[in-house]
């Protein structure tokens, strides 16, 4: 049976884990090695590449509730994370091993979550483009970006999700965050606690996700940690995830219509293509 390199990062600050995500992806672009990983973060909001924070979030309310805000390199919608609310996963895989079509590749990798749910006898269903449903409601969302040789997909398996806090952080009028408003989100969103009608400890969710990786790719996990090279790259990338020029890239970045982080590899790539 093939092996898959696997890292369980445990609980980490969101900026740090974002730098690890990017470092694993960029290193794999050169080495071609696939890797799976898990993590959780303290309260954090991870914005998609092209989301305008100033319009999407109420930053005063985010701060009052203790949420850190950063931005990831992949697109799609914001992810609300906190220590006990969910287990988050990442997978860096070779493009040549995966479908070219994005929706098909989402489906293949989201199989990790579908298989993880089997641990509890729950039936997961992939919903295009990038969600997994359980009992007809969203329990997992994912985001993906691609390089020349590899893709990275990261996502979440909700365990104990606080819908009211998520709505409070969003830039919507407080009066809309009523029992009725929360109920309407509850009709579309679920988590392990709701699905199983009991408190599911996160280590149980982590164990299920490990099983999900193994079953989905037909592999045995090989426990690993960051290499020295990955750690070095991550430490170089870490300031980006705190930097307003990246996080608030549309309004506090150095450029007007091209908002990528000036010191980041994607900006260097972008600039070289413009020349």
């Amino acid at each position: 049976m093939d092996e898959l390199r696997f890292i369980d990062f445990g609980l980490l600050d969101v900026q740090k884990i974002m730098s690890y995500n990017e470092a694993l992806f960029r290193t794999a672009e050169k080495t071609g090695e696939s890797v799976g990983f898990l993590w959780t973060t303290p309260k954090a909001i991870i914005m998609g590449y092209s989301q305008l924070i100033e319009k999407e979030l109420n930053l005063d309310r985010c701060k009052a509730l203790g949420y850190e805000v950063t931005r990831r390199i992949s697109g799609g919608g914001m992810a609300f994370s906190s220590e006990k609310s969910q287990m988050q996963y990442g997978y860096v895989g070779r493009l040549e091993d995966l479908p070219y079509d994005m929706t098909e590749s989402y489906k293949e990798i989201c199989g990790i979550v579908v298989h993880a749910l089997e641990k509890w006898g729950l039936s997961g269903e992939f919903k295009p483009i990038n969600d997994v449903l359980c009992q007809g409601k969203k329990i997992s969302g994912s985001a993906q970006t691609r390089g020349e040789n590899m893709l990275i997909q990261h996502g979440t398996l909700l365990a104990d999700f606080n819908i009211k806090e998520m709505m409070t952080c969003c830039n919507i009028p407080l009066e809309k965050i009523s029992d009725k408003g929360i109920k309407s989100v509850e009709e579309r969103l679920t988590d392990l606690n709701r699905a199983l009608e009991r408190k599911v400890p996160l280590d149980e969710a982590a164990e299920a996700m490990r099983m999900g990786f193994e079953k989905n790719f037909g592999v045995r996990l090989k426990e690993s940690r960051l290499t020295k090279q990955e750690e070095k790259l991550a430490s170089e990338l870490l300031p980006k995830y705190y930097d307003e020029k990246w996080v608030f890239r549309y309004t506090r970045g150095r450029t007007r219509s091209c908002g990528a982080y000036p010191q980041s590899p994607e900006q260097a790539e972008f600039s070289s293509k413009q020349r």
Partner: peptide, 25 residues
Amino acid sequence: TDVIISGDYILTPERCIDELEKALI
């Protein structure tokens, strides 16, 4: 003269969003 195409839609690689904004100027 200036444009931002933000949101939670999906487009990869994401740097093409920046290039698209530039093309619209």
